Simulated scan of single mutants.
Amino acid sequence: MATPDFAEQLKALDATLTSIEKVLDLDSIRTEIASLQEEVGDPGLWDDQANAQRVTSRLSGLQAEVERVTGLRGRLDDVEIMQEMAAEEGDAAAEAEVTSELVKIQKAIDALEVRTLLSGEYDMRDALVSIRSGAGGVDAADFALMLQRMYIRWAERHGYTVEVYDTSYAEEAGLKSTTFAIKAPYAYGTLSVEAGTHRLVRISPFDNQGRRQTSFAAVEVVPVLEQTDEIDIPDEEIRVDVYRSSGPGGQSVNTTDSAVRLTHIPTGTVVSCQNEKSQLQNKASAMVILKAKLLALKKAEERAQLDEMRGDVQASWGDQMRNYVLNPYQMVKDLRTEHESGNTQAVLDGEIDDFIEAGIRWRRGQAA
């Protein structure tokens, strides 16, 4: 028989999961899945590749969403049976396993509950992440590289696809800037709370006197657009520059002028792409980035909140949202939510879910 504590925990988790199921409306999701499966079965679907990719991506995301919820429901049912069997047999090892599984289920349900808080217009979209080094010289450039790795590792941990569009290397080490897409359902809504200035304090590996250095990097997150989004950019408003792709230290990695830089003249927005093999491919990818940034700008202006939407920050003292302290002590702390972790290496290795979830809950509280 289950202990009172276990029974109470199980009851609370069941109530939370039931509430999540109602909010997500699984019946509606299954209806949409059936409709999308019919589209996928149409032999002419791939005549329009962009639409076909949208349909298949949407189908895959919804199927994963249903599997995630039903999988948790199954685990919740199983753990109750496991507890009853362990108690009947007096098996301490089995009871310890039940306790461990219950903790894992609790964490998974908490994460799923956070997902229900993402109800913004573009929250379901893929995320376009841009990182640029700020104050701090070569340490800031190295920090930008560390943040890029952190977000890519986070995506890899979840099985999400990452596509790097542009990387501008600094002369000595690290990055001046980088732009990459993380492709997953709700990637934008999830990562949008990461936008802002990040601050690093450590003993500089680039200082021969071993002094402590403070450096900054700015993170911008915008949603990736779909064909149905209305962003029309007249050709005369865009300046196109082509150049050769470069790698670390400025070395040329391409013998042709395949890299593309687009400048939106009215707003001064500049984007570039150099990771594709051809100039045509790079131009198409750069246009995707430009449209995403212009949409973010448009929405922000409508709400008179440009800084919040674009993450348009100075990447310097006074406006940081998270500190990464590696010396004289080890601590990562979010200044908005007060969430912190002493395992700095794990955080920089992509274990940032707790920070993201705290950020989403904090944002919902601010909006209430």
Rank of each mutant, 00 (worst) to 15 (best):
V332D: 00
K333W: 03
P328S: 09
P328M: 09
G342F: 13
L326I: 04
L348E: 09
L348K: 08
D334T: 08
E351K: 11
I352A: 07
G342P: 10
L335G: 07
Q330M: 12
D349Y: 05
S341T: 02
T337D: 05
D353V: 09
S341A: 01
Q330V: 03
H339M: 14
V347N: 06
L348C: 13
V325L: 11
G350N: 01
G350T: 01
L348T: 02
H339Q: 15
L326C: 05
E338I: 08
Q330G: 05
V332S: 01
G350Q: 00
M331T: 12
D349W: 00
R336L: 04
H339T: 15
N327P: 10
Y329C: 02
G342V: 12
E340P: 03
P328E: 07
Y324N: 04
Q345Y: 10
V347H: 08
G342C: 07
E340S: 14
A346N: 12
T344Y: 05
L335K: 09
T344I: 01
D353W: 05
Y329G: 05
L348W: 07
V325E: 13
E338D: 10
V325Y: 09
T337Y: 06
E338H: 10
N343L: 07
V347D: 09
P328Q: 10
T337I: 07
L335I: 14
N327M: 13
L326Q: 09
E340C: 05
T337C: 05
V332E: 00
R336T: 02
V347T: 12
V325D: 11
S341V: 00
T344K: 05
I352T: 04
E351P: 11
L348Y: 04
D349I: 04
D349G: 09
N327A: 15
